[in-house]
């Protein structure tokens, strides 16, 4: 013991020693309680809203197609139409803004409508959580994001199929997977028409899974 710490030279009576032990334990206990009470809200505050409420956006956000876009969709033949849609989008505390997303619109022929369920059984599974008719009014709209690793794929008219430039996944005109590492076919987007106005919802799906899982509506 250092010489200047006079108080520590005399160990004191057993009562004094046990009292000191109690004070030491109590001090540490107080520290522990304070630490815990502070740690709980601080750690809770770290959790992003998207973990607490998966649909922080509250659900599907419908964005309208312009009349020009709708008519280009309607007049499409067997070539898919690329549509640029502005979706309302809220990033954190920033004011709502428009996020531009690319959407592929495919007009289905009567035969394609008839065979659609057979060609894309994955869209008709009872466990499919997306609440939309897979084909509406003979249109199906696909997300432009490849379900493999998130690249934007393109329609190659020569090959008459969607081909992703990143790792070579290929899909036919109704989005069924033909080749490549993608775990599933193209992801559809809910589409509806009301009073002559057409609307689509953007959905971000989880990549690399064979099942279709919604991550967010933004």
């Amino acid at each position: 013991m250092t010489a200047h710490a006079q108080a520590y030279l005399d160990p004191g009576t057993p009562e004094e020693q046990s009292r000191r032990q109690f004070l030491a334990n109590a001090t540490l206990a107080i520290g522990g309680v304070i630490g815990l009470v502070v740690a709980v809200p601080c750690v809770a505050a770290l959790i992003p809203e998207s973990l607490v409420k998966p649909n922080a956006a509250g659900g599907p956000v419908w964005a309208p197609l312009t009349p020009a876009e709708l008519s280009s969709l309607r007049s499409g033949t067997d070539t898919p139409v690329k549509i640029d849609i502005n979706f309302k989008y809220q990033d954190g505390y920033l004011p709502p803004s428009d996020a531009e997303r690319l959407v592929w619109g495919v007009k289905l022929t009567p035969e394609q409508v008839a065979t659609f369920q057979k060609k894309r059984p994955d869209l008709f599974k009872p466990t499919a959580k997306v609440d939309y008719p897979a084909i509406t009014l003979n249109f199906v709209l696909f997300s432009s994001i490849c379900p493999h690793l998130g690249c934007k794929f393109d329609w190659v008219s020569g090959a008459k199929r969607f081909i992703c430039p990143c790792h070579g996944s290929q899909f036919d005109v109704v989005g069924a997977k033909l080749a490549g590492p993608a775990p599933r076919g193209l992801d559809p987007l809910p589409f509806r028409e009301q009073d002559g106005k057409a609307e689509v919802t953007w959905i971000q799906y989880k990549s690399q899974t064979p099942d279709r899982i919604i991550v967010a509506y933004t």
Binding site: N55, A57, G58, G59, V61, W62, P64, K88, Q90, P96, Q194, D195, K197, E199
Partner: peptide, 10 residues
């Protein structure tokens, strides 16, 4: 009125 206050057009 929608979770995001967007309503339903019309």
């Amino acid at each position: 009125h929608g979770a995001d206050g967007q309503g339903k057009p019309g």
